[in-house]
Nucleic acid binder design. Structure first.
Lengths: 186, 186
DNA sequence: GGATTACGCTACTTAAGGTATCGATACTAG
DNA sequence: CTAGTATCGATACCTTAAGTAGCGTAATCC
């Protein structure tokens, strides 16, 4: 998510493309070292910025990773002629995203970090989960608890395979996941 | 899993019921404080033992939590007249287990810890995952990749709901999960 | 009673998240 | 071109927590 470029920019030193550089370094570090070993010191060094610069922009490591994910995911493609097609497209889209280097591990790590960090849970909800959940509720015309169930099944399965076990999710498994969920969609 | 009580016990100070006490204190701490804040110092204090005693018995915090889970889960009830009944019983059993206080958070936490800790991943595989996977392959007469898919779906969904989001899994959701998986079982 | 083994205690090392301070730098406004 | 402003880099520091070392002590078997 690019920082808003206000036409009337306040004075002071520039922030130019630092966000993008830090995001790239973050995903790279998480991919190579895992969530725990991807320390803020390493990320800062890899991005060529000072650690203090990172903590000036994001309040915690978890918030940095979350912003990184929001930037990487972008808007969901909830398109399709039927509910089945919308669901199928959405599942394949998120499967591809979680399969990208670092995304799965970052996702799983930030979730675990958030379990007992209410501030981080707040950021995760408002910036990552709620937008997709609400968009899905509208696109599928399903109640909240049904959409939450489907999200838990899809995201949980993908994260357990790719973010935790570390194993890849082959195409056949994605196909099986899509078919299983579609059959549960009345 | 209780320590084997060999008839010919070596001399030295007793180990009596320390394992069980530590396990209870561990699950309690994880339940109340979460995986990260459930420090070994707190667990040791709650169990009434010294921290060094814990590290004499388990090589790391992750290994302690894993042993704790192995002890808590025990053998899986893979009984039933049909493959559907076996699968249904197994899903409801693991859903109930992961819903117990501390189990879900411990499970999710140790998985995330294991992502870049090969020693811990080894312990997890041999002591927790492989036994259940192999038993399921035999009970259901399904190939390894199919069983792995079902495990990822069921455990992933439950962990994402209860171990990460922290939300409870109501009976209706468990029913939906069972029905969905059974329909995918040929 | 003696050997053995685990225990409790204290102190320590190391890694990592996060903070404080301050001089330097790069931008905008006039 | 100067002045004001806000960020940056660097260094030093604090705190928590995992894990280790050493040593005296207590409980068990023979």
């Amino acid at each position: 998510m690019a920082r808003a470029t206000t036409s009337t920019r306040p004075p002071g030193r520039p922030r130019s493309g630092v966000d993008a550089t830090v995001f790239a370094a973050t995903l790279n570090a998480v991919h190579e070292l895992g969530y725990a070993h991807a320390t803020v010191d390493r990320i800062a060094a890899a991005a060529g910025v000072a650690k203090t610069t990172i903590y000036r922009r994001w309040p915690s490591k978890g918030a940095l990773i979350t912003a990184c994910l929001v930037d990487a995911f972008g808007p969901a493609p909830l398109t399709g002629a039927s509910r089945e097609e919308i669901m199928s497209t959405a599942i394949r889209w998120i499967a591809a995203k979680i399969g990208e280097p670092g995304i799965g591990a970052a996702f799983a790590g930030v979730f675990t970090d958030a379990v007992n960090d209410s501030a981080l849970r707040q950021i995760l909800s408002t910036q990552l989960q709620d937008p997709y959940r609400l968009a899905l509720e509208e696109a599928l015309d399903e109640p909240e608890n049904r959409v939450l169930f489907f999200i838990d099944v899809v995201v949980g399965t993908l994260l357990h395979r790719m973010g935790m076990t570390g194993e890849p999710m082959v195409d056949a498994d994605v196909d099986a996941l899509v078919e299983m969920v579609l059959r549960a969609l009345p």
